[in-house]
Each structure stands twice: as C-alpha cells, then as structure tokens.
Amino acid sequence: MKNLLKGAVIVMGLFAATSVANAQQKIGHINADEIFQQTAEFKTATATLKTLGETKQKEIEGMVSELQKKEKEANDLMLNQSEANKAETQTKLQTIGQEYQQMQARVQEVQKVAQEEVAKKQQELMAPIQTKVMNAINVVAKEKGYAYIFDTGSGAAVYYGGGDDVSADVKTKLGIK
C-alpha cells in the first residue's frame, strides 16, 4: 500500500511538472503574407512582373491587331465579290483563311508561352523573398523563445486565443518600417 501511494505521488508530481513545462511554452502568431508583401523586394518584384506582363500583353495585342486586319481583308473581298471575279476571290479567301488560322494558332502559342514566362519569373523573384521572411521568422522565434508561431494569414492556425503577435519584431529584422 505504501508503494502504491508513493507511486501515485510520483506520477502526480511528474504530471504537475509536465503541465508547468507545457504552460511555459510561448506561442505567437503572425501574418506572413502581410509581411511578405511589405518587403522592398516584393515591391520591386511586383513592378518587374507588371512590366513583363505589359510587354507580353502589347506583343499579343499587336498579333491580334494583325488578325483583325486579315479578317477585315476577307470581309472586304467578300463584299466586292462578283460573278466575274468569284473564282479568284474564292482562291484569295481560302489563302486568307489559312493564314488567319495559322496566325490564330501562333497567337495562342505566344499567349501560352507568355503565361509560362511570367509564372517562371514570378517563382524566380518571389522564392528568395519567401525564404528571407521565413528565416527572419525563425530567428525572431529563437531569439524570443517561442515554441510555436502560427501563420494566421495562411489559415494554418484554426484557432489562436491570444499569444503574442511577432509581426513587429520580424518587420524590424527585415528593415520594414
């Protein structure tokens, strides 16, 4: 009986010690996307991507303009078609139709390639910024003794009942005012 009582006291002591240790873990939260978007590098990358997108869009618009000219040319031929030039007009319309289809396929290909280029450039520019922000979060967590930091912006934290918002510390670490 004494051994049973001693065992129960030891188990309760260990449970109490574990509860105290767990209660002392610091938990914080942050909105990493918000901080990510406030970095100078993000603003520069966004401007670069916007310029690239506009350049690609102008290129595609030029090609669409050429398509519209072909379409107008075909419409004009059809309007000016007569019995005397019917055979010649039909031959020209077939040629224009083939050129139009080729141009249309080229426009679609250029659009696809442009989207891929912009996506690749976005990944190339944004990945280092994400790494930099994550490294800053890790450094702040270690410096401040946090056991967990939940990202409230990504939905990774289903619930957080307070905790410390370490956004200001991470912004300071990144040089964001």
Rank of each mutant, 00 (worst) to 15 (best):
Q37P: 00
E109G: 14
L5G: 06
S19I: 07
E88R: 01
T131R: 08
I60D: 01
E117M: 13
V110G: 03
G161L: 13
N22H: 13
G145H: 09
A114K: 03
G161P: 03
E61V: 10
F36K: 04
E34C: 04
V64S: 07
K171P: 02
D165L: 14
M78K: 14
Q68T: 07
Q90W: 06
A74S: 12
V107F: 02
A16D: 06
V118T: 11
G145P: 06
D165W: 14
A156D: 11
H29I: 04
T51Q: 12
M63L: 11
K72Q: 09
E99T: 14
V110C: 03
K6Y: 12
I30W: 00
V113C: 06
V20A: 15
A136F: 01
D169C: 02
Q123V: 05
G175V: 12
E34L: 12
Q108I: 06
E59P: 01
T172G: 10
T46P: 00
K112L: 14
S82N: 07
Y159E: 02
A17Y: 08
L49M: 09
V170I: 07
K58N: 04
N75W: 03
D33W: 03
D76I: 13
K69F: 01
E66L: 07
K177V: 11
Y148T: 10
D76F: 09
E117F: 05
Q104N: 13
V140P: 01
T18S: 13
T55R: 03
A47L: 07
K142M: 06
K43M: 02
T91D: 09
K112R: 14
A156W: 04
G7W: 11
M12S: 15
L52I: 05
T39R: 03
I10K: 13
E109H: 11
G53Q: 05
N22V: 10
G13Y: 01
L79G: 04
A74V: 10
K144C: 06
K120W: 02
A157N: 10
G53S: 09
A32G: 11
E117H: 08
